[in-house]
Amino acid sequence: MTNTRNDGRLNNQIRAFESEQSLLNKADGSARFTQNKSSVLAAVYGPIEVKNSRKQKILKSLIEVSFTPSVGNTTYLDKEKELLIKNALESIILTTLHPRTQISIIFQVFSDDGSIISCAINAACLALLDAGIEMQGLIGSVTLCYNHDKSIYLDPTAQEEKECKSLSVIAYGSQSSQIIMNKTEGTLSMDLYFKSLPLSKEACDKVISYIKLAVKNRIMGTISTNTTSTTIES
């Protein structure tokens, strides 16, 4: 007997993805990632000159993240989200290729129905690919919630996040099976945590293959209306 959730999904079913790329004119790269009612827009500017020259790094590019919620001002909760996302993205962007520059990633939440950090990281991956910033691989992120009855829900909605016993945001890269970023809160037994890691890895792999497909459709789509081969003239 499968225990269905409020919106009819199975425990390990993620919500369907939708994405749009290159929405903004001014930004070097932009993308919007939507999972049913959670939707985040990510805009990437970079590599550009560092605004605050005190923060300039000699050997690397500075990554700046700004997270704006859908309602209200930014609070300390958003600052924590910014730091988490910044650390996750810093591990896949090749910052040593652009020393003394800055790569700014700005998030705007359109609607928040749970799993918003994962949504933001996925949107950032698409936006970085759109901007052509060099990366070592792709990144995918997913949120899990562990309930009082020891069941695990993948990609919880806001209601499920409030009612669960503990919550975990995790990000994996395409290059290795090791965790890039993880934050869990709430009480959780160690066995359950380690048992759920392969589940989250599989879900992140699905996100990464979706991202690949989305970018491929976009790039192959535009190039095919131009020419089949391009050579550079002298």
Binding site: L94, L97, L129, G132, I133, E134, M135, Q136, V215, I219, M220, I223, T230, T231, I232, E233, S234
Partner: peptide, 11 residues
């Protein structure tokens, strides 16, 4: 390190 189409420039 980027997404796109691999090209070869003959020139």
């Amino acid at each position: 390190s980027k997404s796109g189409i691999l090209r070869y420039s003959k020139h």
